[in-house]
Structure formats: structure tokens, C-alpha cells
Amino acid sequence: MNDLLSLAFTTAITAFVINIAIASYGVFTKTSLLKKAISIIIFSDSISILAIAIGFRTTETQYPSPPVLGEKPRTPSDVEAFVEVSVDPLPQAFVITAIVIGLAAITLLLGLIILYYRHFGTTDIRAPLDEEYEEVI
């Protein structure tokens, strides 16, 4: 049972690393600022999901449970049983804040891109290098 789970888990991690590589390729080589923004979004999402994958664990007997108690524990052994099957809550706490704050940061980036377009008439990163462009500040 755990062999199959391990196979799926390793495949998923490999997929995330490949996604990070694809996204960094987009950030480095594409010349459109909007395409760079899309690549950055994919990059940060892949990093977040990699962090969650590191917090995953397996158990001897059953599929692990989310880090939420189903009901109020009645005896101390209930709490111990929960620790036995729960996945790591800390990466999840990190990632939740990172996702929402990343959204706000991305909107700031997109606002800057709109201003760039109003100034240069294009979202291409090479616009300031063109000969025709004259500095009007």
C-alpha cells in the first residue's frame, strides 16, 4: 500500500520540480512582461505545493488525516491517536498566508505593467532599448 503511495508521491514531487523549471524558463527567456508575470505565478504556486508535499507523511495502518481534530478529545489518548495519523500542520500555515499575500504582490506587479504599457505603448521588455524611443520624463 505504501509502495503505491510512495510512487505517486515521488511522481508528484518530480512534476512540481519540472513545473518550477518550466516557469523559470518563462521568466528568463520570454520578452513579454505579462508572460513573465504568468510564469512568476506558476513558479510561486509550484514552490508552495512543494512545501505542502514535504509536510506529507504516511502511517502504518491508514491514510493520513488532515491536521483537524474531528471532535473534542475526551481522553489524552484521543490526542495521541490524532498525532499518530495527522499530517504536518506547519507548512500549511506558512503556505496559506503566502498564497493570499502573493496574490496582493502579483496585483502590484500587474499595476506596474499597466503603467509601463501607458508609457511605452507595448509590454515588451526591450522597448526602452529601441532607437526610436526618446526619453520623455
Partner: peptide
């Protein structure tokens, strides 16, 4: 991966 909290935050975003 048993992260329902993160899934809830991630789907609307």
C-alpha cells in the same frame, strides 16, 4: 496531500 485549508484558500485565488 491532506491540506483542506490550503485547498480552500487556493481555489478562489
Amino acid at each position: 496531500l491532506m491540506a483542506p485549508d490550503v485547498a480552500l484558500a487556493y481555489i478562489p485565488v
